[in-house]
Design a protein around this nucleic acid. Structure first.
Length: 421
RNA sequence: GCGACUGUGGUGAAGUUGGUUAACACACUGGAUUGUGGCUCCAGCAUUUCGUGGGUUCGAGUCCCAUCAGUCGCCCCA
């Protein structure tokens, strides 16, 4: 019998955790600069937090890990926004602090999808939410934050796609227009789109199966249904992006998967040809009704989420590597009967902040030298039975391959001297 | 959820129309060399075993079925 991780899950092994720690630190640094603060919500919530009425997305309807305990139904979070808004309302942050509340989260999410590269069943998302205020500049600032993270990860081939869904009135008018337009053409649309026509006609527009269908190209344009206010708002978002030097392209077919978006929606994609079907690095938008939905006042919010598996994979494709090394600085080996002295020496050096590996096994010198090589230590301390009688050890500088005999009292000083070079 | 391809030691992999002993290389362990290695040489390293479970056959890593997992496309989405 052998065990393995469940489908769509994976272990991050020690050789990779360094990258993750560094990426997470980089993200936290950028958040600090933008004065976003971390919020940690539960990994599971009441199912009703995620399963909202009238939600047509597959994520909510087909892909959630839902389980029952007693009379309660719980669900492993498939995304971060719902839990954060729930928390914002539960703790009445709308009254307790200056608005907008600028929050970020980072952690595992769960969706029961068919896995492939860049799409796992347990995956990691970082996301921000700016809740409680509505301004085109907040939207642009959020995009700038995301772009800065991508930039710091060394990813250059990206493009920002942006669109607006307008306010409720605009979108409602457009929805009706689309429905009226598509209904007579229903037979030429794919089966999925039949469902979309009722649930969310906007999504027909970015249907891949019908992408070549001329019916789609001649469909009414959202931009023709935007009222003055929505149009002005969107233009201000674009102007702000221009001012911040962030290039973008307007994609009026971009409607996003989650149903709660209003006004600004955007996706930042990799433009590398090998990034496959999961090219979206981060995506999000504005939501006008979510705060109210969870029991709070009528406040608008804005947020996006980054898939960290995708981010780290794209970053590595462009040559990003973590700076922090897991190598040893010093390797302590022993020859003859040296008792606990090698470990004592190693412990002393560690207490002084030096990364030390100590041989704790009865091994030949050859084996110990090999082990020292693997540790990449720059200094090898050879604790010998003979030298120990006079209170000394041998210190080998790997970079010059020279060896000196040093009194124990001088040891840490000598080691630090070599490491400084 | 649909379709296609793939699955042989720690790693990269060979494996002919099913035919008996699963090649080669790297890595690893030990020795030559019981206190100064990194080169070289020798030895060991999948031992009912080829993702797992069945089946066909005198005989299966090779064929069939099922199943699990990965990858790619669709769908979806970060």
């Amino acid at each position: 019998m052998s065990y393995q991780t469940p489908r769509g899950t994976y272990d991050i092994m020690p050789e990779d955790t360094g990258k993750w720690l560094e990426m997470e630190q980089l993200i936290r640094d950028v958040c600090r600069l933008y004065r976003y603060r971390e919020i940690r919500t539960p990994i599971f919530e009441d199912t009703s937090v995620f399963k909202r009425e009238n939600d047509s997305s597959d994520m909510v309807n087909k892909e959630m890990y839902t389980f029952a305990m007693g009379d309660e139904s719980y669900t492993l979070r498939p995304e971060g926004t719902a839990g954060v808004i729930r928390s914002f309302d539960q703790h009445k942050l709308y009254g307790a602090s200056e608005l907008p509340s600028r929050l970020y989260y980072l952690g595992p999410m769960f969706r029961h999808e068919r896995p492939q590269k860049g799409r796992q069943r347990q995956f990691t998302q970082f996301g921000i939410e700016s809740i409680g205020a509505k301004s085109p500049e907040i939207d642009a600032e959020a995009i700038a934050l995301g772009i800065e993270i991508v930039r710091r990860m060394g990813i250059s081939s990206v493009k920002v796609c942006i669109n607006t869904l307008g306010d409720d009135a605009s979108r409602q008018a457009y929805r009706e227009a689309l429905k009226a337009y598509f209904t007579p053409h229903i037979s030429s649309l794919c089966p999925d789109c039949h469902r979309r026509l009722e649930q969310n006609p906007l999504r027909i527009l970015d249907c891949k199966a019908d992408a070549q269908n001329p019916i789609l190209h001649e469909a009414p344009r959202l931009s023709d249904y935007l009222n003055e206010e929505s149009r002005t708002y969107f233009q201000k978002v674009l102007d702000t992006l221009d001012a911040l030097g962030i290039p973008y392209e307007i994609d009026d077919r971009l409607v996003r998967g989650l149903d709660y978006y209003t006004h600004t929606v955007f996706e930042v994609k990799s433009t590398r040809p090998d990034s496959g079907a999961q090219a979206t690095i981060f995506a999000g938008g504005r939501y006008d009704h979510l705060v109210e939905y969870f029991g709070g006042p009528e406040l608008s919010g804005m947020g996006f989420a980054i898939g960290l598996e995708r981010l780290i994979s794209l970053a590595q494709d462009e040559g990003w590597t973590p700076k922090e090394s897991s190598d040893a600085e010093v390797y302590v080996m022993s020859v003859g009967d040296t008792g606990t002295k090698p470990l004592e020496i190693g412990t002393q050096l560690r207490n002084e902040g030096i990364v030390a590996d100590v041989n704790l096994l009865p091994r030949s010198m050859k084996a110990q030298f090999k082990s020292a090589d693997r540790s990449n230590a720059r200094v090898i301390i050879i604790v010998g039975e003979e030298e120990l009688k006079t209170g000394a050890v041998n210190v080998k500088d790997k970079t010059t391959n020279t060896q000196t005999t040093v009194a124990l009292e001088q040891l840490s000083e000598t080691v630090k001297e070599i490491l400084k070079k």
